[in-house]
């Protein structure tokens, strides 16, 4: 589905990158941990997160993330928006919580960019 349809499903507002709403999206990654985003998110996926600092944009740029969807109604710092414009990363914001936003997208056909990660061995640290 397109970013435009995602905006519709999540009743989201576009903060940066209106011109990219036609981008086709198939997969997503949801996390509030950039370490995990860097380890597991795949190129061309969207990133759903509650983080709003400039590093979400740099992380998205490093990974070729197609768009950032901020959940829980977050509005990022000005620096984050400025950087997103500079690096051409669309940012949308939705009032849905992370679970609800992810679930609504899944129901409409978006899939996780990974299904499971790691191994079944549990290692105590």
């Amino acid at each position: 589905m397109t970013l435009y349809e995602i905006m519709d499903i999540l009743d989201a507002k576009v903060l940066v990158g209106r011109k990219y709403l036609g981008t086709e999206i198939y997969t997503a990654f949801s996390a509030d941990l950039l370490s995990d985003v860097l380890a597991f998110a795949k190129a061309k996926s969207i990133l759903l997160t509650g983080l709003t600092n400039p590093q979400i944009v740099r992380t998205a740029s490093i990974l070729d993330i197609a768009a950032i969807i901020l959940v829980r109604g977050k509005i990022p710092q000005t620096e984050t928006l400025r950087l997103a414009e500079q690096l051409d990363i669309p940012i949308l914001t939705t009032r849905y919580i992370l679970f609800e936003a992810s679930g609504r997208l899944y129901t409409n056909g978006i899939r996780g960019c990974e299904i499971k990660v790691g191994t079944d061995d549990v290692i105590a640290i």
């Binding site: 509030d32 941990l33 950039l34 370490s35 995990d36 985003v37 860097l38 380890a39 997160t49 983080l51 600092n53 590093q55 979400i56 790691g118 290692i123 640290i125």
Partner: peptide, 24 residues
Amino acid sequence: RAGYSTASEEIREMGFGAGMGIPN
């Protein structure tokens, strides 16, 4: 080892420090 971290609160607030850096 994945998951081991000595990160400060400031690093964790930024969204890092989950002990995935070197493994990644």
